[in-house]
């Protein structure tokens, strides 16, 4: 059974932050999809190393961490343009 509490709250925190990511068109630096692919790989490794909270037995990964990253990416894709 997956505990939805950390998933929902982590997603909300990430979504709030993701909506604020706006690229400056005048800037030379562009953070495209490749940056987020690398981020996902790093976040998966980090979530595996962090492990779940004590007494959580639903997953081997840190669910809140991954939910926050998913929220950031979804927030960026929906409002952060």
């Amino acid at each position: 059974m997956v505990y939805i509490g950390p998933l929902v709250l982590g997603f909300i925190i990430g979504f709030i932050l993701g909506t604020r990511i706006k690229q400056n068109p005048d800037s030379k630096l562009k953070f495209g999809a490749s940056v987020f692919v690398v981020l996902i790989i790093v976040a998966l490794l980090m979530a595996y190393q962090l492990g779940p909270f004590p007494y959580y037995t639903d997953s081997r990964l840190a669910n809140g961490f991954l939910a926050a990253l998913a929220g950031i990416i979804v927030g960026k894709l929906t409002f952060g343009r």
């Binding site: 709250l9 990430g14 909270f53 004590p54 961490f65 939910a67």
Partner: peptide
């Protein structure tokens, strides 16, 4: 620094979110 900081800051934010979510256990 300009290439590294944006992804690193996102990882820091995710870890901050994890710290908030574990406040009642850890």
């Amino acid at each position: 620094l300009k290439i590294f900081v944006f992804p690193a800051s996102i990882i820091m934010m995710c870890y901050g979110a994890l710290t908030i979510l574990g406040g009642h256990i850890t």
